[in-house]
């Protein structure tokens, strides 16, 4: 249980550092999504393991886990789409923009 909790806390810390240090919005959205997926799920598993499988905590923790797995990609995608449509600039070192019209998806790679 302690190992799961340490894994979750480490990934949460790395995600927060990524949100602080990444250069543009899209990388930050990716860091936020990674924080939720790899930081929250091991912590919820640690809660389930620590409280036992037949307690009142397990059902709600599994429900929160299921909800996060369904909901998090939807909200991240909606946020990235809104940011792209309102013209938030990408980082100047970005090499590929596959969503721009007129650019082939496979070319443009250095």
């Amino acid at each position: 249980m302690i190992a799961l909790a340490v894994i979750g806390l480490g990934f949460s810390l790395s995600g927060v550092v990524g949100i602080l240090r990444m250069p543009d919005v899209y990388c930050r959205i990716q860091c936020s999504s990674k924080t939720i997926t790899m930081g929250a799920l091991p912590l919820l598993l640690a809660l389930v393991v620590g409280e036992g499988f037949v307690s009142g905590y397990t059902s709600r923790a599994l429900l929160v886990m299921f909800l996060l797995l369904i909901v998090n990609p939807v909200s991240s995608h909606a946020l990235a789409r809104a940011a792209y449509k309102t013209g938030v600039p990408m980082w100047h070192g970005a090499v590929l923009d596959q969503a721009r019209p007129g650019e082939p998806a496979d070319e443009g790679r250095p």
């Binding site: 936020s32 939720i36 930081g39 912590l43 919820l44 929160v64 909200s75 946020l79 938030v88």
Partner: peptide, 30 residues
Amino acid sequence: TISDRIVAVNTLSTQAMLSVLFFAAAADRA
């Protein structure tokens, strides 16, 4: 931009949710 702030608030909400979960397990109130 405003999108950065939305990302920060979203992550803060997730961390607050995890903190509430573990405080509930510590205080032993389901």
